[in-house]
């Protein structure tokens, strides 16, 4: 995975020397403490803990740098926990290199990669009546604007940001800002709720 990512990243134009890899939570935290990164890629399943904690650390250390979760976990609870911890995107390892590369590039230029199944989960979360009780209770639900809900609905149907921009007569940039706002709202919800963090640990331990 490390080799795969380094290939993808160097192909995207990153200098190999600028890349730092950490195999566990402890060394990753040491890395984070040592220098500032312009982007962080995190796996959820780490040998000594949950990558979601690392996402929080990254957010705390450098709010500007995008944090992308790239993992084999597909459970919706994990996806939501990661996004609520402040991740800017959620990628699956099983995707082709080109898809991973596209998402990372989008993230680097300030975009917000979003997968239709992630959008669907957020929509369910935002409409508490439809949300599964096991996921989250109503107080954690983000308060989305109608525009954001609309965009999420289109994402869930599989439209790309460009297509969404065309459909809604917005600029692609605006759509991406909306998506980022959605992520931020999720993260805000989690930061104010310590309870949720505990739950996140619990289900990942």
């Amino acid at each position: 995975m490390q080799a795969r990512l380094s290939t993808i990243l160097t192909r995207l134009g990153c200098a190999y020397e600028a890349l730092h890899f950490a195999g566990c939570l402890v060394s990753a935290r040491a890395c984070l403490a040592a220098r500032r990164f312009s982007m962080v890629l995190v796996d959820v399943g780490l040998p000594d803990g949950s990558g979601i904690d690392l996402v929080k650390d990254c957010r705390a250390a450098n709010a500007a740098a995008p944090v992308l979760v790239i993992t084999a976990w597909r459970q919706e609870r994990v996806v939501l926990a990661a996004l609520q911890a402040g991740a800017d995107g959620y990628l699956l390892k099983e995707r082709d290199d080109i898809e991973v590369a596209l998402s990372i590039r989008s993230c680097l230029v300030g975009g917000a990669p979003i997968d239709p199944f992630v959008a669907r989960r957020i929509l369910e979360l935002a409409a508490p009546a439809a949300a599964s009780a096991a996921l989250l209770s109503a107080p954690h639900a983000p308060q989305l604007t109608s525009r954001e809900t609309e965009i999420l609905g289109l994402v869930a149907k599989g439209l790309t940001n460009r297509e969404i921009a065309e459909v809604l007569a917005l600029s692609k940039l605006t759509v991406e800002v909306h998506v980022k706002n959605i992520y931020r709202k999720l993260a805000v919800g989690s930061r104010t709720e310590a309870v949720f963090e505990a739950r996140g640990h619990g289900l990942l331990s």
């Binding site: 995707r95 080109i98 898809e99 596209l102 997968d115 239709p116 199944f117 669907r120 994402v155 869930a156 149907k157 599989g158 439209l159 790309t160 460009r162 297509e163």
Partner: peptide
């Protein structure tokens, strides 16, 4: 079917765009 096709649409949409 919509759920099945949505991720494909998104991914290939991005690929075709690129």
């Amino acid at each position: 079917i919509v759920e099945v096709l949505a991720p494909l649409r998104r991914r290939y949409g991005l690929l075709f765009e690129s």
